[in-house]
C-alpha cells in the first residue's frame, strides 16, 4: 500500500470534516428561506449523487433508474407515516432496506447485461414502477400522498412549519454519511476489486464471482442511501406523487452532479451539486418566468459545455498533482 495514498485519504477526511463544520455555521449568516431551501436541495442532491456514484461511478454500472429507489423511500416513509402512524425515522430505514433488497433482486439478472443494455434496463424498470404506482389505488395512485400539516414542530415527526434549519442539518448529515460511506468503500476490499476490474479486464474474469457479489453490495448500499433521501424529500415537501418522485428526469438529475463534478471520484458529486443545483434554481426563478424557455437554453448549453470541456469532471481542475481517487470508469457505457 503506497504511502501517498494513505496520506491523501487522511487529508480528504480532514478536509471533509472541516467543510462539514463550516457548513453547520452557514445558516447563522444566511437567513433568507429561499436561499436556505436552495442549500437544502443542494445538499440533498449531493447526497443522492454521491450514493449514485457508488454504484455507477466506482462500480461502473451506469444506472439511469435510481428514481425507483428514491420513489420507494419516499412512498414507504409517507405511507407508514400517514396510514400507520409510524415515525418517519422508522419509515426511512424501512424504505432503505426495502430498496436495498429490491436493488439486489434486480441486480442479479441485470448485472449480466453489458453497456447500453444495462442502462436501458434500469430506465425501463424505473418506468414500470412509475406506471404501477400511478395505478395503485391504495398508495394514492395519481393523487399522491399528502402529509398533513402537524400543529407543532418536532424532530420525531420531522415536521417544522417555517423553520428550515432542521431540514438543513438533516440534509447535511445525509450528505456527510454518503460521503463517508464512499470514503470508507474506497479503501475497502470492494474498492480494490472495482479498481482492479477497471484497470484490467482479465483480472475481472478471474475475480468474477467476488466482483459480482461486490456489485450487488454496491447496488444495495447505493439504493439504501438514495431511499433515505427519498424519505427525507417526502417529509420536507409534504406531498408526493409518482411523477414527481419516480420520473425519469429524476434519475438524470441524480446522475448529473456526479458527472459534471467527476464521476467515480470522492469529491465530484459534492462539487457538481454545489454548482449545478443553485444554477438550475436561479435560472428558473429569475429567467424562467418569461415562458420562452430561456432558462432551458442556458441550462442545456452549460451542460454541453462542461461535459465536453471537462470529461473527467470539474474536480479534475483541483487535482493536477494528485492522482484521481479511482481510475475513471473505463468506458463503461461504450463497452
Amino acid at each position: 500500500m503506497d504511502k501517498a495514498f494513505i496520506q491523501r485519504r487522511r487529508r480528504d477526511l480532514i478536509v471533509a470534516a472541516c467543510l462539514a463544520l463550516l457548513a453547520t455555521q452557514v445558516p447563522r449568516y444566511v437567513t433568507d428561506v429561499y436561499i436556505q431551501n436552495m442549500m437544502i436541495m443542494t445538499l440533498m442532491y449531493a447526497a443522492l449523487s454521491q450514493s449514485w456514484n457508488i454504484l455507477s461511478g466506482y462500480c461502473g454500472q451506469i444506472s439511469l433508474g435510481h428514481a425507483l429507489y428514491f420513489g420507494l423511500g419516499a412512498y414507504v416513509t409517507a405511507i407508514l407515516y400517514t396510514k400507520f402512524g409510524m415515525l418517519p425515522w422508522f419509515g426511512m430505514c424501512a424504505g432503505g432496506l426495502l430498496s436495498a433488497v429490491i436493488a439486489m433482486a434486480l441486480g442479479y439478472p441485470c448485472f449480466r447485461l453489458g453497456g447500453h443494455y444495462f442502462v436501458i434496463a434500469t430506465i425501463v424498470i424505473a418506468e414500470i414502477a412509475l406506471v404501477l404506482f400511478q395505478n395503485w389505488e391504495w398508495a394514492g395512485a395519481a393523487l399522491g400522498i399528502t402529509i398533513p400539516l402537524s400543529k407543532q414542530d418536532s424532530w420525531l415527526t420531522l415536521q417544522f412549519a417555517k423553520d428550515k434549519l432542521p431540514y438543513f442539518y438533516f440534509a447535511l448529515a445525509l450528505a456527510c454519511v454518503a460521503w463517508f460511506v464512499t470514503w470508507w468503500l474506497e479503501d475497502s476490499k470492494w474498492g480494490y476489486w472495482w479498481r482492479a476490474v477497471k484497470d484490467n479486464p482479465v483480472a475481472a474474469e478471474s475475480l468474477g464471482v467476488v466482483v459480482f457479489n461486490s456489485k450487488m453490495g454496491a447496488a444495495a448500499v447505493s439504493a439504501f442511501l438514495v431511499a433515505v433521501g427519498g424519505g427525507f424529500y417526502a417529509m420536507y415537501v409534504t406531498y408526493i406523487d409518482p411523477e414527481s418522485v419516480m420520473g425519469f428526469q429524476f434519475s438524470l438529475l441524480m446522475a448529473l452532479p456526479a458527472v459534471l463534478g467527476g464521476i467515480g471520484t470522492l469529491w465530484g458529486p459534492m462539487l457538481g451539486a454545489v454548482i449545478l443545483i443553485p444554477l438550475t434554481e436561479l435560472t428558473r426563478s429569475y429567467i424562467g418566468g418569461s415562458g420562452r424557455g430561456v432558462d432551458l437554453i442556458v441550462y442545456g448549453g452549460l451542460i454541453i459545455a462542461i461535459s465536453l470541456a471537462r470529461p473527467q469532471g470539474l474536480v479534475s481542475l483541483f487535482s493536477r498533482k494528485r492522482k484521481p481517487a479511482a481510475q475513471p470508469v473505463r468506458e463503461a457505457v461504450a463497452s
Binding site: 451506469i62 439511469l64 453497456g115 442502462v119 438524470l252 446522475a255 448529473l256 458527472v259 459534471l260 464521476i263 467515480g264 441550462y299 442545456g300 448549453g301 452549460l302 451542460i303 454541453i304 459545455a305 461535459s307 465536453l308 470529461p311 473527467q312 469532471g313 475513471p328 470508469v329 468506458e331 463503461a332 457505457v333 461504450a334
Partner: peptide
C-alpha cells in the same frame, strides 16, 4: 473524450 466517453456522450446529448 479521453475519459468517461459513455457518460460524456449521454450528458452532452442530454444537454
Amino acid at each position: 473524450a479521453k475519459a468517461n466517453t459513455g457518460m460524456v456522450q449521454i450528458f452532452s446529448t442530454f444537454g
